[in-house]
Design a protein around this nucleic acid. Structure first.
Lengths: 226, 226
DNA sequence: TAAATCAAAATTGTATACCAAATTTCGATT
DNA sequence: AATCGAAATTTGGTATACAATTTTGATTTA
């Protein structure tokens, strides 16, 4: 019961059950979760406010979808936010957190060798989460996590899609390099490496979607016009 | 009627009619705006998701309040976000936008000389809004405006409080310096000056609240424990 | 007087039912 | 195959009801 209705709805999107462009039917969701339309509607509004889904008057809410340009801008913004967190974390993390960072990198090395994509995705989240906490700034953390959440429907594809032979090693090595900078208290290097890491994630993502479909990032019939 | 119910509720907070810590009674608001509780509740949830107000189960929603530490972190985050926007804007604004920036600074100089605090506040918003647009990144803009909105209940005090002899000239001159850097396409200087501008705004704010009350930023009886 | 206690009143969270307006679906037609 | 239009569906909102809590206020006690 740790999951609020809002979180349950969000999970439908974050786990990929609902994909960008998919509609959220209030009645179906109400039936599915055993509640009335009222709380479903409230949860939908909250998710819309946080940017995970979109609503237009008299239309069903749909999972937020980005075109290539929007995705590029989102990654640019996320790169800067994450770089800020990494830089701050390099200066502010305490010893316990630094130890934890080491162990996450070690675990990541392991799952990477085993090719366990699910575990790799979780460790990816944990790595970034540690830096968000380490930055010692609740607003920066909130911004970072919200930004990350918005992009999740896209970036998770890199880890979970079976048919895409994404290199698990490359992102891991980038994480390891960032972690080393953080452990060295080198804020500038940590920020720079993080910015590059995010940029390369975008490149991997665009490559993936280019392979998947010709010129449309989402799986919906009609792409959302810029 | 360009104002949605959500915006009307937000305005209660942003204009200072509802201050940090104040409760939002659903029935009263419903009666006041001539609607039923349902849409009020939805609007409240949206504002809670965007961080302007807080909700706890079975409690009335209250206007978000920051203690000194939280306010400091919020300004640190906002300083970095605004600096990012300013830096990008310096490189990306087009000629029309640069002209507009000039005219806003000129108008600001005018209102500043006349001591018109209300107009000064509006021009302050417009100045920052121009840079948010000029950064050519919808997500950065969204983050910047949401961050700014959260802080508004506090920072607006500097402009509107009659009894505080805030220097209108100082922030204006900082804006002018930032604008000049932007017009010179000097991203580094624009970012640096913006970061300093936000930092000085926080100092002015803390001075103001220190004057107003001993050790409690909000006007509520019981301060929210850190 | 100040603090503690307990019952009454008010408020939230959710359910239901109902309705108008708009959108979507789908079959008929060109 | 594309278009058109009517029927069915869906959203957005109103109103009412009610249990679970929280808040308020009065009363009692130290």
């Amino acid at each position: 019961m740790a999951h609020s209705l809002r979180q349950k709805l969000a999970d439908l999107v974050l786990t990929g059950e609902l994909r960008p462009g998919d509609r959220l039917d209030e009645q179906s969701l109400a039936t599915r979760f055993g509640v009335s339309r009222t709380p479903i509607r409230e949860a939908i509004r909250q998710l819309a406010a946080s940017g995970l889904i979109e609503t237009r008057p008299r239309r069903s809410a749909v999972v937020r979808s980005f075109n290539r340009e929007e995705l590029g801008e989102a990654f640019e913004a996320m790169g800067e936010i994450e770089a800020l967190c990494a830089g701050r974390a390099a200066l502010r993390m305490n010893e316990a957190e630094r130890l934890r960072l080491r162990s996450v990198i070690a675990a990541s090395e392991d799952t990477c060798a085993r090719g366990d994509r699910t575990a790799a995705l979780e460790l990816d989240f944990e790595f970034h989460g540690l830096l968000h906490d380490g930055a010692r700034n609740w607003m920066l953390k909130a911004i970072a996590e919200e930004t990350r959440m918005k992009i999740t429907p896209y970036s998770a594809a890199l880890f979970t899609m079976e048919d895409y032979e994404a290199d698990l090693l490359q992102p891991h090595q980038q994480h390891a390099a960032i972690a080393q900078s953080v452990l060295d208290c080198d804020a500038v290097a940590a920020g720079k490496l993080m910015r590059e890491h995010i940029a390369q994630t975008l490149i991997a993502l665009e490559t993936f979607f280019e392979t998947a479909s010709e010129n449309n990032i989402t799986s919906t019939k009609k792409g959302s016009g810029g």
